[in-house]
Design a protein around this nucleic acid. Structure first.
Length: 961
RNA sequence: GCCCUGGUGGUGGAAUCGGUAGACACGCAGGACUUAAAAUCCUGUGACCAUUGCGGUCGUGCGGGUUCAAGUCCCGCCCGGGGUACCA
């Protein structure tokens, strides 16, 4: 009945089928006989056309091991999977081929599912979600509506219904309202009641958590579309490399800034890596300082600025406004108007690329106006310069060149005075600014002698006393753009009734994505939906044609898994309170400031409006590292020689030559010899060269200058009486992607070695969180381990070995040491050491010739989270009728590990010289006697008496001479 | 620049609380079985010196320090990876 040799193909196919038929991994939303719940989640994938590569399952394998482990330990485990199915690549593909994105997405999902199934995951597929299903995005739209219908009350510190706000307005205007949002003009109740509907909405927009704002977007003329920040690299479009300029447009936003402080504070309550938390902290960028109003000479308005260094106010020698500042054009005096206008226009129209490549170049223009220094009364000039950001603070700064390097560079450029007001430990020589927040104030009147920190407080107090400013906190975080001018996304459920944005009624949700004839951008900056007049125009008004960004659906998907088929709510209250927070979330660190921040934001909002009973979605987060690939490429001469392409071997090139004359052409790694070896260079031989030109026919007649001759059209002309062509390639470590032709498909590994080997091997590669290049070398070791494991159970003739014999003391010790180590290591997500532990255990049990079923069955359970197929097969062979998934994790018993003696390392001056065995209960004094009498110790003491003898019971003995 | 990481044999990595550095595996070398190969099994494998047996010296990026004892803690550097970048 059993095969004598481990046959992964048969076993894995068999069990995957049984698991599927029996719905073995299905979970119920209820406490089964007092089982506690545990929620393990993976970041769901975007189903791209390329399929999975070996890097994708890394995190899934880890979470699967953890889920199975928790299940065996008596938890009711929710471990679902789904698809983040809206997104650009499908749309891009649709534009190129005319295929509906829904169709390609469906195809890709099928392929993903097949690949995932092959790895043997324990997902509960009955709970699958897809963000592009109307049943799903109906709730994404519903949440958007809630954002629209709420505002952030700073007094209560949470989101509240907009109707409450309107009631307040009708009662007392907005005089007493404190909110997180845009500044709104003050009005009283009577005025509010008189406002037109449009005017009211204009005001409400400054409060709503989902609102519209006119902003600059990244406009790419060539692509005829607006690009997200992520799609712009170095000032040009990531795809195609076309120039990107700024364009002003109305856009939907979510007011994440209202939650900035709570997002910051919440970080202290969750178990995430420091690096991710830090990234979020930096991204939110809280800075405390002061808002100070400087009076403008000859004007009644005051210029507000934000500074974190009010202690340096006596060193302020000029003011600077951003070119985007609302006064930039109105402030300058007559003599400077024209010049300023020219500068501002130029600065605003510069493309991203110009601005980026020009960071070093300091520019600016004087307005002809002056501010009055609030303490000295001196006049200080107001400038306009693009080094000041329009969107941060008030878009204006007081420049303190002596203590801010940016102001310093500007002062040097335009010959403005530099006044030192902080004395640090180093002398100030005027060649550079002193930016450190250390030292004491000088030349600063009432601040003199104070250390920086105290001076900041005192300066703020002084400013407040003078009623020219106040303490203020600023955040770097910006409100999140929520509209995309794209087709393949959730339609925003808004109708413009007489130009007033109005959400659809709940009964009209989902607002389904209509069919369009073309997925191409309209060229006007609107989404392809805008061309569909029949859809846009309704009886009540025109529809919003923007769709939601990719992160909309993924911001709350973890809730839908709890109750995926609910038609009345996004998930029932019972389901949400039963499953609660995600206990373990596994995914890539690249989502640090995107998905992971947005999910936290949405969760906090849903908490405020009473949908979820917790503020943080993911209790513990583990970031798996990236599995990189080897990128192989060839050097091609930029210029053809005699009309022919010429490739040159790396051994014939110098770095300068490469820089000037060559470009890199990537090659399918499979063609390259030794590409996996780190110790020898990779190269192309006769066969590889043929493969390459067949693969890239445009290089059919290319010349290959090899290290030892020239190859062309299949003919090799050796330099000397040489042997075979050898053409060395460039090897780099990079992303595994279709683009670099280095994708390793998990299916191939499953076919050759099996899913169990793939699972173990991916874990064995190293710590989960580390990035590492994929290499097949070493996989044999893991495969060999499984075969050895098999041989513990099955003899040469296919007979089942284990029997009811009494386990030996040694075997019990091996088993319990293994139980302890595996349990501990799984708990701390150290799966690579688990694999080593299994190898050690199998080596030991083999040596002991262990036949005890009791021991071996326990080993099966321990291994089952890692290699479920082989474990299930051998479990069944042992006569068990229930799946091993339903077994119980073996109980660790200390008594089998207790030793009565210990082989102590004995060191002299910290260096181990010998080993001596002593009973663990021997008193220190007696041990010391034995140690001092030892031959080796005596030799090392050279007749001297040790100064000190350190004996740490159960650990070590050290003698100091 | 700033923030976060990491640096250990030929390779991937282990050492969880400061207590025998290099577990486990790959690779390599030698051997057994075999007509042969594959598979399997056994032995060795940080470097250097010694090698007849012992043994010895050095060694966790570099330089200091704390300690009976440092890969692990502290100070100062060097290098790689990731994030972020005029955020006042």
């Amino acid at each position: 009945m059993l095969e004598a040799h481990y046959n992964h193909r048969f076993i894995e196919h068999k069990w995957q089928q049984i698991w599927r038929e029996k719905l073995l991994y299905r979970v119920e939303n209820e406490t089964i006989a007092g089982k506690p719940k545990y929620y393990v989640l993976d970041m769901f994938p975007y189903p791209s056309g390329a399929g999975l590569h070996v890097g994708h399952p890394l995190g899934y394998i880890a979470s699967d091991i953890f889920s199975r482990y928790k299940r065996l330990n008596g938890f009711n485990v929710l471990h679902p999977m789904g698809y983040d199915a809206f997104g650009l690549p499908a749309e891009q593909y649709a534009i190129q081929t005319g295929q509906h994105p829904a169709k390609t997405t469906e195809d890709n999902i099928k392929r993903y599912r097949k690949q995932l199934d092959r790895v043997g995951f324990s997902f509960d597929w009955t709970r699958e979600v897809r963000t592009c299903d109307a049943d799903y995005y109906q709730w994404t739209q519903w949440i958007f509506k809630q954002f629209f219908n709420h505002w952030y009350n700073s007094r209560s510190g949470k989101a509240e219904p907009i109707d409450n706000l309107v009631a307040i307005f009708e009662h007392e205007g907005n005089i007493n309202v404190l909110h997180q949002g845009d500044e709104a003009p003050k009005f009283i109740a009577e005025e509010w009641l008189d406002f037109s509907v449009a005017k009211k909405e204009d005001i409400l927009q400054k409060y709503r958590l989902a609102f519209r704002k006119k902003t600059t977007v990244n406009w790419c003329e060539e692509l005829g579309t607006v690009l997200a920040n992520e799609e712009v690299k170095d000032g040009v479009s990531e795809r195609g490399g076309y120039p990107v300029v700024k364009k002003s447009m109305w856009q939907w936003f979510l007011r994440i800034t209202a939650y900035a402080d709570r997002l910051l504070k919440g970080l202290d309550t969750i178990d995430w890596s420091d690096s991710i938390k830090d990234m979020q902290r930096n991204w939110i960028g809280k800075s405390e300082g002061a808002l100070v109003h400087f009076s403008i000479d000859g004007k009644t308005e005051k210029l507000p600025i934000f500074t974190t260094r009010p202690d340096t106010i006596f060193g302020a020698t000029f003011m600077v406004l951003a070119p985007e500042h609302e006064w930039a054009l109105t402030l300058p005096d007559a003599d400077h108007k024209a010049e300023v206008k020219q500068y501002v226009e130029h600065a605003l129209n510069r493309s991203e690329r110009d601005r980026m490549s020009d960071v070093k170049h300091v520019t600016g223009v004087f307005t002809g106006r002056y501010c009055k220094h609030p303490f000295t009364g001196e006049l200080i000039p107001i400038w306009i310069a693009d080094y000041v950001l329009g969107g941060y603070g008030t878009g204006a700064v007081m420049a303190v060149p002596a203590h801010d390097s940016r102001d310093f560079a500007f002062a040097k450029q335009f010959n403005l005075p530099v006044i030192q007001v902080i004395e640090g430990s180093e002398p100030f020589d005027g060649s550079a600014s002193y930016d450190a927040k250390e030292g004491r104030c000088i030349k600063s009147d009432f601040l003199n002698g104070l250390p920086v920190k105290e001076a900041i407080q005192k300066a703020i107090e002084a400013v407040e006393e003078k009623r020219i400013g106040s303490r203020q906190v600023n955040y770097r975080l910006r409100d999140a753009g929520f509209g995309r001018q794209r087709y393949w996304g959730e339609p925003i459920p808004i109708l413009y009734v007489d130009d007033v944005p109005t959400p659809l009624a709940d009964r009209d949700l989902p607002l389904e994505l209509p069919e369009v004839s073309s997925y191409k951008p309209t060229g006007t900056g609107e989404s392809p939906l805008a061309a569909l007049d029949t859809w846009v125009e309704t009886e009540d008004g025109n529809r919003e044609t923007d769709t939601m960004p990719g992160w909309a659906g993924s911001s709350w998907y973890f809730l839908r898994y709890m109750d995926p088929e609910n038609e009345d709510v996004l998930a029932s209250r019972e389901a949400i309170s039963y499953w609660g927070q995600v206990d373990l979330y596994v995914g890539g660190a690249e989502h640090a400031t995107g998905h992971l921040l947005y999910s936290r934001f949405w969760t906090k909002f849903l908490y405020d409006i009473g949908i979820v009973p917790f503020e943080e979605p993911f209790k513990k987060l583990v970031n798996q590292g990236m599995i990189q690939g080897v990128v192989e490429s060839l050097y091609l001469k930029k210029e053809k020689v005699d009309g022919q392409s010429v490739f040159t071997c790396t051994s014939l090139l110098t770095p300068e030559k490469i820089e000037e004359e060559y470009t890199k052409i990537p090659i399918l790694v499979d063609f390259v010899q030794d590409y996996e070896k780190t110790d020898s260079p990779s190269y192309l031989n006769l066969e590889s060269l043929k493969l390459f030109v067949d693969w890239r026919p445009e290089f059919q007649n290319a010349v290959f200058e090899c290290s030892n001759g020239t190859w062309q059209n299949g003919i090799f002309d050796p330099k000397a009486k040489s042997y075979e062509p050898k053409f060395f390639t460039v090897s780099e470590v990079g992303k595994m992607s279709k683009r670099w032709f280095n994708v390793v498909n998990p299916d191939d590994i499953c076919e050759e070695y099996g899913a169990d080997t793939l699972r173990l091997y991916e874990m064995f590669l190293g710590p989960l969180e580390d990035s590492k290049p994929w290499s097949i070398s070493g996989i044999d070791g893991v495969y060999r381990f499984l075969r050895k494991f098999w041989k513990l159970f099955v003899d040469k003739n296919g007979n089942y070995i284990p029997d009811e014999s009494t386990p030996s003391k040694e075997s019990l010790k091996t088993l319990h040491a293994t139980i302890k180590k595996i349990s501990d290591d799984i708990e701390r997500i150290s799966f690579n050491t688990c694999v080593s532990t299994f190898m050690i255990a199998v080596n030991e049990l083999s040596a002991q010739e262990c036949k005890s079923k009791e021991i071996l069955d326990s080993m099966l359970i321990l291994l089952s989270p890692f290699a479920p197929h082989i474990a299930e097969e051998l479990w069944e062979a042992g006569g068990h009728t229930n799946s091993i998934v339903l077994a119980q994790w073996p109980r660790f018993q200390e008594k089998y590990l207790v030793e009565d003696s210990k082989l102590y390392p004995v060191s002299i001056n910290g260096k181990t010289r010998t080993q001596l065995e002593f009973p663990l209960d021997m008193p220190k004094e007696e041990m010391e006697k034995h140690v001092l009498a030892d031959e080796v110790v005596v030799k090392w003491l050279e007749g001297k008496t040790p100064k000190k003898v350190i004996i740490v019971p159960g650990r070590i003995i050290n003698l100091v001479v």
